[in-house]
């Protein structure tokens, strides 16, 4: 294959763009992680030296650790619930024609088009009206509302792309619809389901805007704790806590990757 000058320019431009995009995506997080190991008292770059003191302080901080626990268990429960609800919705949208299908689809994606602040205030008033505000339920429900669109979109794409021949063969062999879903559909779209679960987890784990309205009774999430901390203090503890958030998210993704393999997930 012959390359002319234009091809070379495009190849180089493509490579430069890729590097720039990857750098832009990874550098902020990498910078935060690097700063979290500073031995200095300020978030100066380059760091003054290497130290784990800010991690020690982060792990000793009761507000941060209880917030980390709250964020983690809320995100895990939300990911599981969003997966169940999102799969059901995506399956219905993909497989069946029924009155109101367009409305269901629009509703499933609507949280994406409503600004998160407005959604947070709306949910606050809704749960206040239901007299449920002084429980953990609004936080779960708020995060669930945010996560469902991502799950529906991802699962819907998996369902649309996967070949239905195996499902039809199973049904020809008299497998019940539930058995077909359980033994054929779910295993075939497993990578999509797990990607959706990761989306849901990350959406819930990193949310501030909705959480700040729905937390109650000391159950503050880590991003809200971090956000309020920044209002009065600005030191490498912020970088250490942010890095812990990054590590937790990475741990979730890597665990899933170890369970099913990166190739399958991609």
């Amino acid at each position: 294959m012959r390359y002319d000058f234009t091809d070379y320019v495009l190849i180089v431009a493509g490579a430069v763009t890729r590097v720039a995009v990857y750098a832009l995506l990874a550098l902020p997080a990498a910078l935060v992680v690097v700063l979290s190991f500073t031995s200095g008292e300020t978030m100066d770059f380059p760091p003054a030296g290497f130290s784990m003191q800010w991690y020690q302080k982060a792990f000793e901080s009761e507000p941060f650790m209880s917030a980390l626990w709250t964020s983690t268990y809320v995100a895990v429960i939300v990911a599981i619930a969003a997966l169940v609800i999102g799969f059901a919705a995506a399956f219905a949208i993909n497989r069946f024609d029924f009155p109101g299908k367009g409305l269901l689809q629009a509703l499933a994606f609507s949280p994406l088009i409503v600004p998160a602040v407005v959604l947070g205030i709306g949910l606050l008033y809704l749960f206040a009206w239901m007299n449920l505000i002084q429980t953990m339920f609004p936080l779960f429900a708020g995060h669930l509302v945010l996560a469902i669109p991502y799950v529906v979109r991802t699962v819907l794409a998996s369902l649309t792309l996967h070949n239905r021949v195996l499902e039809e063969a199973a049904m020809n062999l008299r497998a019940s619809p539930l058995r077909v879903v359980r033994r054929i559909t779910l295993p075939l779209i497993l990578p999509g389901l797990l990607s959706a679960a990761i989306f849901a987890f990350v959406t819930s784990f990193g949310n501030v805007t909705v959480s700040v309205f729905l937390t109650y009774g000391g159950n503050v999430t880590l991003p809200v704790q971090l956000f309020t901390y920044l209002d009065h203090s600005y030191n490498p503890l912020v970088a250490a806590v942010s890095s812990i958030m990054i590590f937790v998210t990475l741990a979730v993704i890597l665990t899933i990757e170890r369970l099913i393999g990166a190739e399958t997930l991609s």
Binding site: P63, V224, Q225, T228, Y229, D231, H232, S233
Partner: peptide, 8 residues
Amino acid sequence: GWGGLYDE
């Protein structure tokens, strides 16, 4: 509370 060092 207002978070961070303030609350502490």
